[in-house]
Simulated scan of single mutants.
Amino acid sequence: MAIQELPLVIQTSYAELLDQLRLATASDFPEGSTFRKRTISGKDYWYVQEPTTPQGRPPERYLGVDTPERRTAIDSAMSAKAHADTRKAIRRSLSGAGLPEPDGLTGAVIEALADAGVFRLRGVIVGTIAFQTYAGLLGVKLPSVAIRTGDLDLAQDYGVSVALNDTLGVSLIDVLKSVDPGFAPVPSLASPNIAATYARPGGYRVDVLTTNRGADRDAPVNLPSLRSDALPLRFLDFLLRDTVEAAMLTRFGALVNVPSPERYAVHKLIVSTMRKDTGESAVKSDKDIIQAGLLIEALVAKRRQDDLAAALHEAAARGSAWQERLRQGTVRLGDEPREIVQALMGTG
């Protein structure tokens, strides 16, 4: 299908909402807070030290990777604040223009996660909820068939969680219960005291995922910074590398982390081959291919084929198993996205 670009005024409004959310995130500090940049393993990261209170001096908190956008927001943090009403008006105009927005429950969960610091701690929204954000990020229209979902997938790189030396103020289940007291842990097969899924009556689920680069394992592992267990998944490290910030169209808008669209597309090609051929698994596999194909076409339409090519070649360089899954997934694409991938990979 031909990819349709969003009107320029809508693309500009989305960029403005993203900037306002970054400003609001960096501005949400007491007067007298100081910001520090630290270099760790060749990358620069920002931290904030809030002023001493009657209860003592708060610990220094991690803010995120150094980017031009974050530096701009930090520079403005103590002199300007984004107004919630302004963000709400922008969000309403974007929604009216057809940009995807989460359902009410998902939006409330995402706002609670953001307020608790999940995305500050490099939590990442993955799955179809993340896919919804690519319409705004890429400035294109996405068909509704590709963005329907009933669950939320939250991921964090295991190494990041261990290395951050910072945690949520309350456990992840407590964050979810603040939205709906009906949320409860779903005990894993490994132990009744371990849970990587939280569900509420009616079947809505929040699944917590993490990276697994060693031997395959079914037992969840603990993510200390998110104060939750998580299910380790192969191939997830590829998806979580070089994430991007996106504006989620919740009530006032929420700044979240999502995979880059090119990595999302390549990852969907791979995981589509891991599902069964029947039932719900087959439906999910078809959806994987639809989403991958749409993003492949959108990236080319927005002249980002170099980004897509880099992601494809990185995946292929990881070995024959990755190459075979890429080949199998590519074969199932529609004619245009399949020809694009084959041309970029030199396999046409």
Rank of each mutant, 00 (worst) to 15 (best):
P187S: 14
I296P: 06
L23G: 12
D306F: 08
N212P: 05
Y134V: 03
A246N: 10
N212G: 12
L295P: 08
G279T: 12
L105I: 15
F252W: 03
E111Q: 14
V160P: 00
F252I: 04
R70T: 09
R57E: 15
F131L: 05
A195M: 05
D66F: 02
M78H: 13
P224Q: 13
S285I: 06
I270P: 11
I10E: 12
A24I: 02
R213A: 04
L231A: 13
P192F: 01
I40Q: 14
R263D: 07
S320Y: 05
M248P: 05
E280N: 15
R148D: 10
G159Y: 07
G159M: 01
R327Q: 13
V179K: 09
Q342N: 12
P261Q: 05
L255D: 08
M274D: 14
A84P: 10
R91F: 04
A184G: 09
V221P: 09
V331S: 09
R318C: 01
S225G: 09
D306Q: 13
Y47I: 07
S33Y: 03
T250K: 00
T330L: 02
V145Q: 09
V170S: 14
A247M: 09
K276I: 08
I340D: 08
L176D: 03
G150R: 10
M78N: 13
I289C: 06
G279L: 08
D288Q: 11
L21C: 11
D44Q: 11
E50D: 11
R303K: 12
A163K: 12
T128W: 02
G139E: 04
D153S: 03
P58I: 09
A163E: 14
S285Y: 07
D66Y: 03
L226E: 08
E16V: 12
S33G: 11
V271N: 10
R87A: 07
T86L: 11
L63E: 05
H83P: 00
A298L: 02
S191V: 01
F131S: 05
A219V: 10
N165D: 14
L6W: 05
P54Y: 07
P59V: 12
A26W: 04
L142K: 01
E69W: 00
K81V: 13
P224R: 07
E69T: 15
A24H: 09
D44V: 04
P185L: 08
V109Y: 01
G123K: 06
Y45M: 11
V186P: 00
P102Y: 02
I40E: 13
L172E: 01
V160Y: 13
P51R: 06
V124L: 02
R70Y: 07
S191F: 07
T211H: 06
R71H: 03
D180Y: 02
R122M: 08
R241N: 03
S272E: 15
R327C: 00
G56M: 12
G182P: 04
V206N: 07
L312M: 11
N257R: 15
E69V: 06
I173W: 01
R91N: 09
A246T: 11
E50P: 03
